[in-house]
């Protein structure tokens, strides 16, 4: 128990100290008057507005989260279908892979206004943007994962009479899990940020809309509060993905003492 506690301090301690130091410097800059208070609120001010505005923040966060979830869900589904088809048909892979990479060079901010013009101010354009942003890491993660299956294992399963479906079910799909989760982590982080950005450019509710409103009011403390809220939300979601990863791949998190090798 004590040893475990000591290990936690050793592994997480430096990061905690660094974060506290950054907050300390921030506080110092405000208090010493190096930066005027109305431009940079103190950490305390930010926490205060985070608490006083909590109902409004939560209401808007729900909207943003909804957009992120729907977009991520659809992005995963489309990414999965594309990855499976592109893994099955080499020609499709050669045709679409460059297109996918190319599509990633288009900045989200640049097409968001277009989407708003096409699909209106409701949720639809935001969800579409999240789909576009999250589709790529998912598809690429899965594709790389499918391709990581050892050709010798494929042959072995074939020799046991496994057809395409069984090779997929028992070999390719489970082999793709690690890189799928790497992709999912990135996609999850993207999805929240993309939803917020798309809200900047037109909408009725959501953290992005709230952000543009408080910006216009020069309420820097509220601005900081919403930024911090967005990173907290992203962190929580990424943590959920990590937990999911552990549940889906228990064999990757065996006790070190139990391993013969790694």
């Amino acid at each position: 128990m004590i040893r475990k506690f000591r290990n936690i301090i050793r592994s997480k301690g430096p990061a905690v100290v660094a974060i506290l130091a950054i907050i300390g410097i921030w506080e110092f800059l405000c208090v010493s008057g190096a930066v005027p208070r109305y431009m940079l609120p103190t950490p305390g001010d930010v926490v205060t507005s985070l608490i006083s505005d909590r109902e409004l923040l939560w209401f808007n966060a729900k909207v943003t989260l909804q957009e992120a979830f729907y977009g991520l869900g659809i992005g995963i589904a489309i990414g999965f279908v594309f990855a499976v088809l592109m893994d099955m048909f080499e020609t499709l892979y050669r045709a679409l892979y460059p297109v996918m990479v190319l599509s990633q060079t288009i900045p989200t901010v640049a097409i968001a206004p277009l989407l708003v013009l096409w699909f209106g101010y409701e949720m639809k354009p935001k969800i579409i943007l999240v789909v576009i942003a999250s589709f790529f890491p998912i598809a690429v993660g899965l594709l790389d994962g499918f391709k990581s299956a050892d050709p010798d294992s494929v042959n072995l399963l074939r020799s046991m009479g496994a057809g395409r479906w069984r090779i997929f079910r028992y070999l390719k799909a489970p082999s793709a899990l690690p890189s799928f989760f790497s992709g999912l982590r990135i996609a999850t982080a993207y999805s929240v940020v993309t939803a917020v950005i798309s809200e900047w450019l037109g909408g009725f509710n959501g953290l992005g809309v709230y952000m543009t409103r408080v910006k216009k009011a020069y309420a820097f403390d509220k601005m900081f509060a919403v930024i911090i809220l967005i990173s907290i939300v992203s962190l929580v979601l990424i943590a959920i993905v990590s937990i999911l990863e552990r549940v889906c791949m228990p064999y990757r998190h065996l006790d070190d003492a139990d391993r013969q090798d790694s």
Binding site: L156, R158, S159, G161, A162, M249
Partner: peptide, 18 residues
Amino acid sequence: KPGKISYMLQKDLLLPYR
């Protein structure tokens, strides 16, 4: 005709997730 006789290699090819 695969599916009648299997083999074993130098690599054990055990699936790590099973």
